[in-house]
Write a protein that binds this DNA or RNA. Structure first.
Lengths: 349, 349
DNA sequence: TTGTAGGCGTTATCAC
DNA sequence: GTGATAACGCCTACAA
């Protein structure tokens, strides 16, 4: 098994050495027509000996497909969250399962060139688009390019595209009801950063909507906190909340990166979870389990989302005319140990 | 500007509409020979109108290069660390800067197929290989394939390959000296997981070597802790250490994921950093700054490593015969607030 | 300054 | 069962 990409290492060379024509080698490899066992074996021997693999570009050119999918990630400047990371890894895994390769592309900011290359140079057969905004120009761009794609997240109005999303509104609303059932009357929503929500970040908007609706439905008082995606912001946010609104006894969150700070703020205030303060939300299981005590929360199923997105994409590629499918995931709320009945006496300021 | 990948959308179509030959269009695009301003403009107009972009596969086939680099990441099963994540994002960023695309490939475990595709189907012009082991089969595989590559990390003996690494041995040794200067006599090294180190994970081995050497040099007593890459393992590890070896007053770490647990264990034991216990190590700045108090530590410069690796790779691609270059980075230890003079009295068990 | 033509390595449609 | 041969879309000598 010598080095593959040597000099004249192509299907013709294999054919020559095996004493057959190029087409026979091609068919022996693809299995798209009968090849006698004897010749197939002869060909295979030569291939094994030389370590030959067909050239991907030539194949893509001839077949009209690349066996590659694009994954558009948010730009690196804003550090990716752990959930996003899990997602990237899971997409790669799911693609590998289907013998597809993954071409990564940042988008937003400086990186339009990379995105344009991806979609308009026929580098990929389809695209998975992360972090879709409520109004997202890239969606139109992809449609223009007639490229099959699946969104992670969904824009405001678009029955015409495939997407996979988590039901942030429904789940947060569920969390609020859970807290209401436990007797909490004043609760807060720990949302993502102000900038993110301002630029139309779907989960932020939908969590807010679900929160407001549920708060009203149950006659509660609700406070929304927009909080940076890091521990320090979380600590500041919660410290301020505890100081300024001591009547608040519970919190729902979608901001996992802030959790270590939340923990510190509660510790510093001498509050015990769940005795003095209840906590729940939508969080990658990793973060939920690392909290003390472990969080009762809906675990964002990054792996399953990636797998569903990939099979949706494969389907979109196979049948471009098929009606778009949506998957709105509503993972169960895992009961751990961070919510309890509201404390009987209010904390004083 | 209509949809690009329509039906007959290729360089010939552009040529036809502009009333020139295909080669003229090609040259107008590449600039590899003079084209009169008039025709160039006419061609450009047609291109703009139709939104044409050359087909990547055809170009790769003709040029013999793909304008794509491969990034081999550890498999998703073992969750990527934050540092690795930063690194992936930074590589993509650096590649985009050079107008290169990035093909992602998991490796190890189930994913040999993906790795083999990457290196033997001419899908990429070069490879960045993350998480190199002290003995790493992939290195030989890449060399066999004659594919330019750059390692993040370096194997035990290999002057023949390009790599970028952090000087774990030197930095940990530096940390130990710092602690020794502060009067600590019993210190510990919080290493990565036993499995990782057992499979020849370079940073683990080199941190250990630097630790042992420095401990001996300064006449200290050292304990090495192999600890899982998560908060719970960190907490268990440190709790046990504090209980079993109360004479230990300082710790150096390369296990950032364990830090939240380290913090909890110290809190639970009622120890204050740095008054009662000093902490330092090699950690992505993100984690160092999220600790309370912020850690005095060498910040792993993921962004710069990625940039250096990318330019090394570009150089390897340009001149495959050039002697291999190495970059051993030794980022400065950022003074924050987690180390102080050793406590005068030993803690009791 | 521009056009012609051959080749890059596959796949796939014909014939045999 | 197997071989020629024409695409696939682009690049680039070689001519003009």
């Amino acid at each position: 098994m010598a080095g593959p990409q040597g000099s004249g290492m192509n299907i013709g060379e294999i054919a020559r050495r095996a004493g057959v024509s190029r087409s026979t080698v091609s068919y022996a490899l693809s299995g798209k027509r009968q090849v006698s066992d004897a010749t197939r074996q002869r060909i295979q021997d030569v291939i094994d000996e030389l370590g030959y693999r067909p050239n991907a570009a030539a194949r893509a050119l001839a077949e009209g497909r690349t066996r590659t999918v694009g994954l558009v990630i948010p730009p690196a400047s804003k550090r990716l969250t752990h959930m996003q990371l899990d997602f990237v890894a899971s997409v790669v895994e799911a693609a590998a399962q289907a013998d597809l390769d993954v071409l990564l592309s940042p988008s937003g900011g400086e990186h339009e060139r990379s995105f344009e290359r991806l979609i308009s140079e026929s580098r990929v057969d389809g695209v998975i688009l992360m972090e879709i905004r409520i109004e997202d120009a890239r969606v139109n761009r992809l449609r223009e390019a007639r490229l099959p794609f699946v969104g992670i997240g969904h824009p405001a109005h678009d029955p015409q595209m495939c997407w996979v999303d988590v039901d942030y509104a429904g789940l947060i609303s569920h969390c609020v009801r859970h807290l209401a059932d436990l007797g909490h009357r004043d609760i807060a929503l720990l949302n993502r950063s102000p900038e993110l929500v301002a630029t139309g970040y779907g989960p932020g908007h939908r969590a807010r909507a679900g929160f407001l609706q549920a708060v009203e439905e149950h006659g509660l008082t609700g406070t929304e906190l927009l909080c940076g995606d890091d521990a320090r912001s979380g600590q500041e946010c919660i410290s301020r909340l505890l100081a300024e609104q001591p009547q608040v006894t519970a919190l729902a969150t979608i901001n996992e990166a802030a959790l270590p700070g939340v923990q510190r703020a509660l510790d510093e205030a001498g509050l015990q979870v769940p005795r003095d303060f209840s906590l729940t939300g939508i969080v990658a299981s990793h973060w939920a389990e690392d909290f003390r005590p472990p969080l009762t929360a809906a675990d964002v199923p990054a792996g399953e989302m990636a797998a569903r997105a990939m099979s949706l994409l494969i389907e979109c590629i196979r049948r471009p005319a098929a009606p778009p499918e949506h998957v709105l995931m509503s993972p169960p709320i895992t009961l751990r140990n961070s919510t309890a009945a509201a404390p009987t006496f209010h904390r004083s300021r």
